[in-house]
Computed example of a mutant assay.
Amino acid sequence: MTKLRLGPIADDRPIRVTVELPAAVHRDLVEYARLLAHESGRAEIAPAKLILPMLTRFMETDRGYQKQRARARSNDEPSPDPV
């Protein structure tokens, strides 16, 4: 069996977000949740619980985003005072 990119889903305090998904994306999300539950030995994982870790993983592995984010942070840091 192929290893899925998402690891265990943490039980975190949820924050309600409303999002509309195309039916095909929802079906894929449901299937991914089913496969991940099977892989991790859990009875079930709610598909909505996958959205946060998927978005987090996407942003963590997007090199362009990380470069821009680092650049923005370095521009926000105050310059050291001249001595």
Rank of each mutant, 00 (worst) to 15 (best):
I45N: 01
G64E: 13
D76I: 02
E44D: 13
A46G: 05
F58R: 08
S40L: 15
D28K: 13
R34C: 14
K3V: 12
T18L: 06
A46F: 08
Q68S: 10
T61R: 10
I9F: 00
K49Y: 08
V19Y: 01
D62S: 12
I9G: 01
R63H: 09
M54R: 03
L4V: 12
P8W: 04
A37M: 10
A23C: 05
A70Q: 10
D81P: 01
L4K: 07
P8K: 10
S40F: 02
V17R: 03
G41S: 08
V25G: 02
L52K: 11
D81N: 09
A23D: 15
R16Q: 05
S40R: 10
A72R: 05
D12R: 12
D81W: 09
A23E: 15
R42H: 14
D81S: 10
I9Y: 00
P82Q: 08
P8N: 07
P8E: 13
A48E: 10
T56S: 11
I51P: 01
H26W: 09
Y65N: 04
R13K: 09
E31G: 11
N75D: 05
I45W: 08
D76K: 04
F58P: 01
S74A: 04
R73Q: 11
Q66S: 06
A70Y: 02
I45A: 02
G41I: 00
